[in-house]
Design a protein around this nucleic acid. Structure first.
Lengths: 156, 156
DNA sequence: ATGCATGCAAAACCTTTGCACCGGA
DNA sequence: TCCGGTGCAAAGGTTTTGCATGCAT
């Protein structure tokens, strides 16, 4: 996903790619592997765009979601997180969420094609997108044996 | 899942099963196939427990989540929804979310065992729970051809 | 008496909205 | 000029928290 791809999508729908919107997209592109919150974006932009308010970020992210450029994720603890969708393949979002350290890891593979075919056959349901989250623990997690000491951080 | 199962789990952790908590559990048991919000529960209980406030429901649901008796789900639109976990098998939560009508259907089968085994082999990640949501459309959905008329309801 | 649980209200938190202003076609 | 976009502040909805009271051991 490049800036000019995104510019083309804006143009196709007659949305304006203003300097604010472009700056927000740039932050997303520069942090492609992260799952940023609105506040994350706000703070990263503040030095360069001190007047840009969170409302504009919310509005821009809604727009980008509508265009399927970003995906909005809400894990139910704290604020929603946003993520550029992967290159061509479109939908697929799988996460490993460690219950010890809270780490959120994205699985880059699409393992669900056959399940989707089965849903269509057996439920008459045409899948356009999915999200799969696993909770558990990394064997190598440094906090593996600290479970009882945890404060109540919600990881899912 | 029966009330006495739940009572046993409370006792095992030295939590008190007060009349308020029992009433909340009863509402969940009586609506086992629904995905209730705190407000849903509050309104259902109001006639019988007019003094019971939402704070108690929040606190009780947190407790029930911690005991893995209910699952908290947040789809990012509106309030969180809560659901009794299925009988013995423990974790498994798969949903079909229709983008036309917003209907939320639960899939009652556990299709992910082999994926979980693969995650352990390839990522060193021990899965304790997962959630799988599919967005799409039921072929039979009555609103199938009304997409352009939709207001912006968020279904995922 | 001690400590957990409750009820109420206030606060906190995240997000959306209203409205005046700005800037490009 | 027109219209979408922005900035700020206020409102909205959901959830958490503080604190006094209540209840059971």
């Amino acid at each position: 996903m490049t800036m000019s791809d995104i510019a083309a999508q804006f143009a196709a729908r007659q949305y304006k790619l203003t300097s604010q919107r472009e700056a927000i997209v740039r932050v997303l592109l520069e942090n492609e592997t992260e799952h940023l919150t609105v506040e994350d974006i706000y703070l990263k932009m503040k030095p360069y765009h001190p007047n840009l308010g969170m409302a504009t970020i919310y509005r821009t992210l809604d727009l980008l979601s509508e265009l399927h450029i970003v995906e909005k994720m809400n894990f139910g603890d704290g604020p929603a997180r946003y993520d550029l969708r992967g290159g061509g393949q479109g939908h697929m979002h799988h996460h490993l969420i460690c219950e010890d350290c809270g780490e959120l890891t994205e699985i880059k593979e699409d393992w669900l094609a056959e399940l989707e075919a089965r849903l269509e056959r057996e439920y008459g349901f045409l899948v356009t997108d999915h999200r799969l989250d696993f909770k558990g623990r990394f064997k190598t997690c440094e906090r593996h044996d600290c479970r009882s000491a945890r404060t109540g951080r919600q990881v899912g």
